[in-house]
Design a protein around this nucleic acid. Structure first.
Length: 230
DNA sequence: ACCCAGGGTCATA
DNA sequence: TATGACCATGGG
């Protein structure tokens, strides 16, 4: 007991709770049909653009790329930085994201696109995605789950708050710890993971951003488990 | 005016 | 390993 034990050190203990939360969210919001994109490549573009950015702004930039006929890996890979940054202006960090998106597309083209990547086992594919500058753990997992259909659980800020609010984690655990927590507690099912993450985000949009004082899903009556602050 | 958004990198200690 | 600074637009 000298070493501080995280509550999430024992994933199987929370299996039923995590499925209860999933069912509560699903019965409230219904299937979310994520990721909102037409192609796997668009999923990956959106995953980069939505970093610390609201989705409405990502839609604007995706549309700007589409209008300019640049919603393709070769077009982005060879685009002028200033032009690319202009299309990405709505998502913020446009200089950073222009470089990240271009780096990703150039890498993507060298990999022979999806067919080659889709043949890789999940661990290898994850490592490959993480090797691209600008693709961190959450962005890579968005791609793995929503573009490649792999059973990888995506951890975002909302998920951390959810775990903290339910007493399953402290909140400052490394990304990998929380991802492993979900994946060991739940069955490896990409369909469930897909819906679960989407539902958590939907719940955050529904309650957190509206600053609701109550949330029937939350076991704590006063505030929503995903709400900001305390 | 303030806070936050479906994060990640880099410099520093 | 673990903080802090930085990136930057748009909506509540």
């Amino acid at each position: 007991m000298s070493t501080p034990q995280h509550p999430c050190a024992d994933p199987t203990r929370y299996r039923d709770d995590l499925y209860w939360i999933y069912n509560a969210l699903l019965s409230r919001y219904g299937p979310q049909h994520w990721w909102p994109a037409d192609t796997p490549f668009e999923v990956m573009v959106g995953a980069v653009l939505t970093q610390n950015t609201s989705w409405i702004n990502v839609e604007r930039s995706i549309q700007a790329l589409r209008d300019a006929d640049h919603l393709h890996p070769t077009a982005i890979a060879t685009a002028d930085h200033v032009a690319l940054a202009a299309w990405l202006r709505p998502v913020g960090y446009f200089n950073v994201k222009a470089r990240r998106l271009q780096d990703f597309c150039r890498w993507y083209l060298t990999q022979g696109e999806e067919s080659r990547l889709a043949a890789l086992p999940t661990a290898s594919l994850r490592a490959a995605l993480l090797s691209v500058k600008g693709v961190g753990p959450e962005t890579a997992d968005d791609m793995l789950l929503y573009a490649f259909g792999r059973p990888v659980f995506v951890i975002d800020a909302y998920t951390r708050r959810l775990l903290v609010r339910f007493g399953m984690a402290q909140g400052d655990e490394p990304y990998e710890v929380l991802r492993t927590f979900f994946e060991e507690a739940l069955d490896a099912d990409a369909t469930i993971y897909n819906e679960y993450h989407a539902l958590i985000v939907q719940h955050a949009k529904d309650t957190c951003r509206k600053r609701q004082a109550r949330c029937s899903i939350c076991p704590v009556s006063l505030r929503c488990p995903l709400s900001m602050g305390a």
